[in-house]
Design a protein around this nucleic acid. Structure first.
Lengths: 359, 359
DNA sequence: TTGTAAGCGTTATCAA
DNA sequence: TTGATAACGCTTACAA
């Protein structure tokens, strides 16, 4: 009988983690009792037996196998987090926020990184579902709501971060894009800039990009009513078309007197692309072209004269997303919510037309 | 009987993923046969039955539950990756490399982020073990080899990245720290710098830090033999002691004529701290103090006059670590290996004493 | 070549 | 209040 092996000197193999059966045996009770002790400590329990079980558990350093529990319960204490690209600092900050919230609630995050490959969305959902994750936090490209829809079809609750899908009745957590953009525009105007260019990844129906772009124009219009000189255009520029960006910036610089041209970027990666382009064009941040970018990063203060940014409360976004999900996992079913968090302007040299060069 | 429910209209609940039993039933065979079809397609299989099973699987869109498989086999197709801090770009690059390799081999990575809290090391190992990960890739602080040792005690193979533990007989993958440091020193000397300061996180017995620091001094000594003017000191500086760093840099700058003082940093985070400190001191990168930092990043080209760096092949490190592990999971047991990869010098303005300010 | 049945580590239903 | 026992979805001897 296998069982006896457990008491043998056991050669050099690992001490074979204790199971509920082991605990039951050494406590002299049934498995059911041990399980009850674990899951229904409050109800049904004679003091005597309870302590015997407790002692046995401690002695064997027993802890239940989440895999077995998952199999039996159909729940796994696992939450799936799908991100478009871990290389993006935004995703990492999200992860950290979500992780913290999950940890407190006893959940573990399974991360699936799309590595910017949309095609893997379905795969991500399927894979994570197979591992019995109880719900999803999605921050994917999601040109359609496909991934989210699949998740829902699997019967798992979903929270969307940053990318909205209006046809899906799910929780949605995001930066208040409209407000954030207003912060950027108003700040630039106040600093004397009047000729603005919004540089974004190709919009392609991604909600965040749409919202930011339309907000950009709305606030430009708004400013125009008090100063007709103020104008704004959009440049959609894929990341592999550096020349296109160069051309856009060159034109911007040429078309506006010194101190009037400014760029607003849609995220940290785009900001860096603009910085790179300006370096190629030998244009100076702030002095030649102003810049405010969405997303704060560690390095923003030290690039050129310092990058002015709209900081997203990224960790918060992750935390709130996780908590909303966990709430639903606990059985609550509030109507789908939209939670928008405000951004914060951090003003640095790149939005001062008289900015000194740093270092 | 529960089973019958499956054929009922099933209200609005999810379509309840097909199980092996469902497949067996619709194919008119036993579960064992389906399992065989899945796992031993080559051997034992009558053409007729094989196709019936195949059809049924397709029809039901069946795929086996990894959880159940894990429970039965004791193997899960999961690999645990423990990183000290996901915020560190190094960790992310690692993750991406490892992820890719794992994906190709059909493994999934479970990430556990210590968030720089050493105390959670054991927890990480225990948690991941409980989820039946088959092996570990560890990039932790690991002041002792505790975590790795625990993993090994659990009987799971381990690969260490970047942090070595000599007493542990496991695979180890890392940058060739000695070679990397030589690249840095020789480059700085060639550029005319002679008074060097190595800025590092507190060494505290972390192998990488020790190796880099001692290599720093070795190559300084080596250069000294041809030019006695060349000197080097170490500054161990915890991240919450900015004044200490300021003081160190001030002293360095004061003690050396223009164009002679240079700093070497131990990683990207430290580089940024040095950049911040210099900004506070109003010192110019390159001109006042030279800088070469280990770790290349997206933003390195655009900070000040551009940061000179020693780029680690980070993705490669992750890939190799994953592959080594997978090899062992497949049953091979080569003796423990050390794999050291070379760094690459990327020279920018921060190591030119006549560097122009950027932007 | 296929099927039967036991068992992986749990939880939950039912008796006792 | 406790203990058998049957699942959960899968793999694998062992029989047929």
């Amino acid at each position: 009988m296998k069982k006896n092996l457990k008491n043998a000197p056991a050669s050099t193999s690992p001490p074979a983690k204790a199971t509920i059966a082991d605990v039951a045996r050494t406590a002299g009770v049934s498995k059911a009792t041990v399980s009850r002790f674990l899951n229904h400590r409050d109800t049904l329990l004679s003091k005597d037996i309870a302590t015997r079980v407790e002692v046995a558990i401690a002695a064997l350093a027993y802890s239940p196998s989440p895999m077995a529990q998952a199999l039996k319960r159909g729940r796994s204490k696992l939450i799936g987090l799908v991100v478009a690209d871990v290389s993006n600092p935004f995703s990492v900050a999200l992860l950290r926020g979500a992780e913290k919230a999950c940890q407190q609630a006893g959940y573990l995050i399974m991360l699936f990184n799309l590595a910017d490959d949309d095609a893997r969305e379905q795969e991500a959902i399927e894979t994570l579902s197979a591992y019995q994750v109880e719900g999803f936090i999605l921050n994917t490209l999601g040109h359609d709501g496909g991934a989210a829809a699949t998740a829902i079809r699997h019967g798992k609750p979903v929270v969307l971060i940053d990318r909205r899908h209006h046809d899906l009745q799910v929780d949605f957590v995001s930066l208040d894009n409209t407000g954030a953009m207003r912060l950027a525009i108003d700040h630039l105007v106040e600093r004397g800039f009047s000729n603005m260019l919004y540089v974004t990844d190709p919009i392609k129906g991604v909600s965040t990009r749409e919202e930011r772009e339309s907000a950009f124009h709305r606030w430009i219009l708004n400013q125009q009513s008090s100063d007709s000189k103020i104008v704004g255009r959009t440049l959609e520029c894929p990341s592999d078309k550096a020349e296109q960006l160069d051309e856009g910036l060159r034109a911007l610089h040429a078309s506006a007197p010194r101190g009037q041209a400014a760029v607003v970027t849609s995220n940290a990666v785009t900001s860096l692309r603009v910085v790179a382009s300006m370096a190629r064009l030998k244009l100076r941040l702030g002095m030649d072209i102003g810049l405010v970018g969405i997303d704060e990063t560690d390095w923003a203060p030290y690039v050129g004269p310092g990058l002015s940014t709209i900081a997203q409360p990224t960790g918060e976004l992750g935390r709130i997303a996780a908590n909303s999900l966990i709430e639903r996992l606990k059985g609550q079913t509030p109507p789908p919510r939209q939670i928008l968090l405000s951004g914060e302007l951090i003003s640095r040299g790149s939005s001062r037309s008289d900015a000194p060069s740093a270092n």
